[in-house]
Measured scan of single mutants.
Amino acid sequence: MTEYKLVVVGAGGVGKSALTIQLIQNHFVDEYDPTIEDSYRKQVVIDGETCLLDILDTAGQEEYSAMRDQYMRTGEGFLCVFAINNTKSFEDIHHYREQIKRVKDSEDVPMVLVGNKCDLPSRTVDTKQAQDLARSYGIPFIETSAKTRQGVDDAFYTLVREIRKHKEKMSKDGKKKKKKSKTKCVIM
């Protein structure tokens, strides 16, 4: 069974824990209790493949930012979460993405942009803004509501699919490099 290491990042209060708990335990946590770091595991079937999701729910508070490099190193894919009623959390996505790329030393890291709290009427981040940002990053965008469960499975499952595509691409690139290195030079 394939294991996928997913990391949920975003500013404090955007609903990272609520999304994760909704996926794992099928219930909505409405009281806000700032996370330092929590880890969850769940076995699911995605596109006919049974897999184990190892999900790291991270601290959004700035005082825990020193811990970010460590979990970013171990993560295979990242859910970059903002709240649709919090423009600052949307603007912060850029910083999370840049930090992930720096730590992973790669421009090509599996990510999904997630606009959470889409059940709320007080939207300050337009869907088109988020779609445009995701398009500019070359990553999928999904709106979710941890409260109603809308888009929750889709967000995590899409990230797994992005990781699969990335692994497939990397193995193809690896095979191309191996083929090239088999060419021999004969000096007579």
Rank of each mutant, 00 (worst) to 15 (best):
T2P: 12
T2M: 15
T2V: 08
K5A: 04
V7W: 13
V8Y: 01
V8P: 02
V9Y: 09
G10P: 01
A11C: 13
A11V: 09
A11L: 14
A11P: 06
G12H: 13
G12F: 07
G13Y: 07
V14A: 12
V14S: 10
G15L: 01
S17F: 00
A18S: 07
A18Q: 05
L19V: 11
L19G: 15
L19F: 12
T20C: 04
I21F: 03
I21C: 03
I24M: 14
Q25N: 15
N26A: 12
N26G: 13
N26F: 05
N26W: 11
H27I: 15
F28Y: 08
V29F: 13
V29H: 06
D30C: 10
P34K: 04
E37H: 04
E37I: 01
E37M: 01
D38W: 00
S39H: 00
Y40D: 00
Y40P: 00
Q43H: 07
V45Q: 15
V45E: 13
E49M: 14
E49V: 08
T50Q: 15
T50W: 04
L52C: 14
L52G: 13
I55Y: 01
I55R: 00
I55N: 03
D57H: 00
D57Q: 00
D57W: 00
D57P: 00
T58R: 00
G60M: 01
E63S: 07
Y64R: 10
Y64V: 06
Y64S: 14
S65N: 03
A66S: 10
M67G: 09
M67F: 09
R68N: 15
Q70T: 13
Q70P: 12
M72P: 06
M72H: 06
M72L: 10
M72A: 06
R73H: 15
R73W: 07
R73N: 14
T74S: 11
T74L: 07
G75W: 02
E76C: 12
E76R: 03
E76A: 07
G77A: 14
C80D: 03
C80Y: 07
V81S: 09
V81T: 09
F82M: 08
A83V: 02
A83P: 14
N86D: 13
N86M: 03
N86L: 02
N86F: 02
K88G: 07
F90R: 15
F90Y: 11
F90V: 09
D92V: 03
I93Y: 11
I93K: 01
H95D: 12
R97M: 15
K101H: 15
R102K: 15
R102H: 14
V103D: 06
V103T: 15
D105Q: 06
D105H: 11
S106M: 14
S106N: 11
E107T: 08
D108H: 08
V109S: 06
M111Y: 03
M111N: 01
V112D: 01
V112P: 02
L113P: 01
L113N: 05
V114W: 01
G115N: 06
G115C: 12
K117Y: 15
K117F: 14
L120W: 10
P121Q: 09
S122N: 14
R123H: 11
R123T: 11
R123G: 12
D126A: 05
T127F: 05
K128H: 05
K128R: 06
L133W: 10
A134V: 10
R135M: 13
Y137F: 06
Y137M: 12
I139H: 05
R149M: 15
Q150P: 13
G151L: 10
V152G: 10
D153M: 09
F156A: 03
F156V: 06
F156C: 05
R161H: 02
I163G: 01
I163C: 03
K165A: 12
K167D: 03
E168G: 10
K169H: 10
K169L: 07
K176W: 05
K176G: 06
K176Y: 13
K177N: 12
K177Q: 12
K177P: 08
K178M: 05
K179E: 14
K180D: 04
T183V: 09
T183R: 14
T183M: 09
C185H: 11
C185K: 15
V186L: 11
I187Y: 14
I187R: 10
I187Q: 15
